[in-house]
Computed example of a mutant assay.
Amino acid sequence: MSVSPTAPTTVRIERAHAKINLVLRILAREANGYHGIETLFQKLALHDVVHVSVGSGPRRLSCSGPTMPSGGLGPVERNLAWRAAEAYGAAAAWDASWQITIEKHIPVGGGLGGGSADAAAVLRALEALCPTPVGLPRLLEIAGRLGADVPFLVTEHSRAWAWGRGDRMLPLPALPPMALSLVVFRSGVNTGAAYGEFARVREARGESVGAYGYVASAFKDWSALVTIAGNDFEQVVPGMHDGVRSVLPLVRDHAHRLREQGHAAIGMMSGSGATCFVLHPPAVELALEVPAGARVVRTETA
């Protein structure tokens, strides 16, 4: 379907929520070169704002906001939100003219899923605007081709257990809000490079890893999650990023001291980095002294 030049513009505004990984296990590398994962996704209140309009005029994507890198985000055709819009149009056989504006609040390249969240928001917006929507199963299929975080971020769930390439999910009931102190850096970690380094280290050790096993009770509340929280990327990313090397022990120590006081608290790194965080009860005041080049962002679980 083509949109007439005289057709009225239709607008959809979506929140693109950041995520953290409270569990991230890297499984064997598949024949296509991709690694399978097992992960526990948790959405955050922190979010970008994505405006999508459909109507006359050329296709366009623009990004601005307080967390935009000084050098920008590169060519728009490589932006995940642009690719999401093109993929949706192809799947729906909808030759629409769209304009996308993204207001960035999620730190870029920090393992918080900002680009994936924006792509997911574009998919949701176009699904709502399209005269022939493709339906959730097809939407998740499109999302899965864009990245491991995108299928979860397409959904309305606040948390989910995911495996494979992130496209197989078990939604989990929401838990009471917890506070997060995120330590973010000016530079992030290239996800492909982190996977490559992890594969190199695992091969050097001669390790062969299959799926892990978890009991259902490990997901029931924050205190139980403390016992299974972990991120395999923490084995290699501190050697790739000076900020993570200095801050990861700091957030772990803060979380450990809070647990000694009887609080549920987790200190770890999200995704492939570089963002490190302390998850803790909202009533707890947490003072984090971070090195130069890092800053603290306060938010909470969604």
Rank of each mutant, 00 (worst) to 15 (best):
G89M: 14
P282N: 06
G74S: 03
V49K: 07
R252E: 11
P173F: 06
K220M: 12
V244T: 01
S56L: 04
T227Q: 14
M169Q: 15
H256V: 06
E285W: 10
G55S: 10
P107I: 02
L140N: 11
E285T: 11
G273D: 04
A265I: 13
G271T: 02
Y212P: 06
H157G: 10
A92S: 13
G109H: 02
A255V: 02
V150A: 07
P291E: 08
G114R: 05
A204P: 05
D118R: 04
D242W: 02
S97V: 00
E234A: 14
V52N: 02
K43F: 03
H280W: 09
A193W: 14
E197Y: 06
A302D: 12
L286V: 15
E38N: 10
G164S: 05
W163H: 15
P171Y: 13
M169P: 03
A18I: 03
W98M: 13
P281Y: 07
A292M: 10
F233Q: 03
A179D: 02
V76W: 12
S246Y: 06
A87L: 05
P137C: 11
G262Y: 06
V52Q: 05
F277C: 02
Y195T: 01
M1N: 10
T275R: 06
G36A: 14
G72V: 01
A224C: 12
W82R: 01
P281D: 02
V237W: 01
A18N: 02
H263Y: 15
V76G: 04
A91R: 15
P177N: 09
G55P: 01
R124G: 07
A179T: 07
G110P: 01
R60N: 11
R165I: 12
E197S: 13
P291G: 08
G72L: 08
W222D: 02
R205T: 05
D48T: 10
A160Q: 03
F185P: 04
E127D: 13
E103Y: 12
I266N: 03
T299F: 00
F198L: 15
R124I: 01
S2A: 15
V215R: 11
E289F: 12
A81R: 06
G72M: 02
P66S: 03
E127Y: 01
A120D: 05
A128F: 01
A45Q: 13
Y34D: 00
D221F: 07
G188N: 07
E14C: 14
A128R: 15
H254Y: 11
S70Q: 14
H17C: 13
A218M: 10
V296S: 01
L286S: 09
V278Y: 00
L258V: 09
V76E: 11
L129D: 07
S223H: 14
T301R: 05
A84Q: 03
V278P: 02
E77M: 04
L182C: 06
L27A: 11
G71Y: 04
V297H: 00
P176E: 11
S246L: 14
Y88A: 06
Q99F: 09
G243Y: 02
A294T: 08
V3L: 14
A287D: 13
A294D: 00
P75K: 08
I20H: 00
N231Y: 04
H280R: 09
